[in-house]
């Protein structure tokens, strides 16, 4: 017998595999897994259409816990594997789960080129600014001066900015969210899914063992309001407990102002995700830290170009015939 697709509404549970989740207790990955399962269930796509691809690292165990198709690949190469999957079957919804070491260090090249090609794949980068699986070395997003097992006197490296990197590489969707901002994460993931093309989502994630509290200035409930600004298209950039602060452009730079004191609401920068310049400026900000969609623009996807070209060539030349291929060029007949 063949299985028929159950048209029933899927729930979060339908996306949980039978495998025991083995991240450290309290790891930020749990919240992300839970949100991804919830969001997938709401997208209206049957389970078999999802493929979750990962590289190596704590986050990369992710596919084993998703009851979808999944591929736990090798360190840094997930965007390349995902590109192959998407090209071979554009009908699939292909998600890459990766970490800061996986995507930005060993796999940096693949991330850049996946972004530039604009294949319709979704990259979720769990950024905890540390190597967790190998037990605590500095990562490409570790801030300068950070003391780790491999930088006992403090890191002498300059960190990479994932937002700038992907913008620079030509990503058509660049966003950031945070492991503990569950509804924001859900909205952001859904926006990434709805985006036609390459979508990059940086998810700030807490490593309880090796880098606990890395993002606390942004995530602690009592401080969050003053240090995080939510990006909403068409809306002025406001933050603070009573939304009393805002961002203005002054001398080509962004500056925080107190509304009513330094500036009025109409002075504030209005978020426009179609502006690459604004996206870059927002990407520079650390306090307040912007979360949400920095940049989004619609462009034909890589697989669209590829398949359109295949169809065009078929129209021009007719469907390929092996006989014609073999006989191309000069031939001679022996009787």
């Amino acid at each position: 017998m063949t299985l028929t697709v159950n048209p029933k509404v899927l729930t979060k549970k339908d996306f949980a595999s039978d495998q025991t989740v083995r991240w450290c207790p309290g790891c930020g990955d749990y919240a992300i897994l839970s949100t991804v399962q919830k969001v997938f269930a709401q997208l209206g796509l049957p389970r078999e259409k999802f493929v979750v691809v990962s590289g190596i690292g704590c986050s990369s165990r992710f596919p084993y816990y998703m009851n979808t198709y999944g591929f736990h690949t090798i360190h840094g190469r997930a965007p390349a594997v995902a590109t192959g999957i998407k090209l071979a079957n554009p009908d699939l919804s292909v998600w890459v789960v990766t970490g800061d070491g996986d995507a930005l260090s060993i796999g940096g090249n693949h991330l850049i080129h996946a972004a530039r090609r604009n294949a319709d794949i979704k990259v979720l980068l769990f950024n905890n600014a540390i190597y967790g699986l190998t037990k605590g070395q500095l990562s490409p997003t570790s801030p300068r001066g950070m003391k780790t097992k491999s930088s006992p006197y403090g890191s002498v490296e300059r960190p990479v900015n994932p937002i700038h990197l992907t913008l620079g590489a030509g990503a058509t969707f660049v966003a950031r969210t945070v492991d503990v901002f569950q509804s924001h994460m859900a909205e952001t993931l859904e926006a990434a899914y709805r985006h036609k093309g390459f979508a990059f989502v940086e998810i700030l994630q807490n490593c309880v063992i090796f880098n606990h509290g890395m993002w606390f200035p942004y995530t602690e409930r009592d401080r969050r309001h003053d240090h995080v600004v939510y990006l909403e298209p068409g809306k002025p950039l406001r933050f603070g407990k009573a939304q009393e602060k805002g961002l203005v452009m002054k001398d080509g730079k962004m500056e925080t102002v107190i509304l009513g004191e330094d500036a009025a609401e109409e002075d504030l920068v209005v978020h426009d995700p179609s502006s690459p310049a604004l996206a870059f400026m927002l990407g520079q900000l650390r306090d307040p830290l912007p979360v949400g969609v920095f940049y989004q623009v619609e462009q034909p996807t890589y697989e669209e170009w590829m398949y359109r070209q295949m169809e065009d060539v078929k129209r021009q030349k007719g469907k390929g015939d092996l006989k014609a291929l073999y006989h191309a060029g000069d031939t001679w007949v022996v009787e």
Partner: peptide, 21 residues
């Protein structure tokens, strides 16, 4: 698929094979 490097060419082929090509 002209890949960004040798590694990606191979990795993408692995992905394509997984997807049935």
């Amino acid at each position: 698929f002209q890949a960004e490097d040798e590694i990606a060419a191979m990795a993408a082929a692995v992905g394509a094979a997984f997807a049935g090509a």
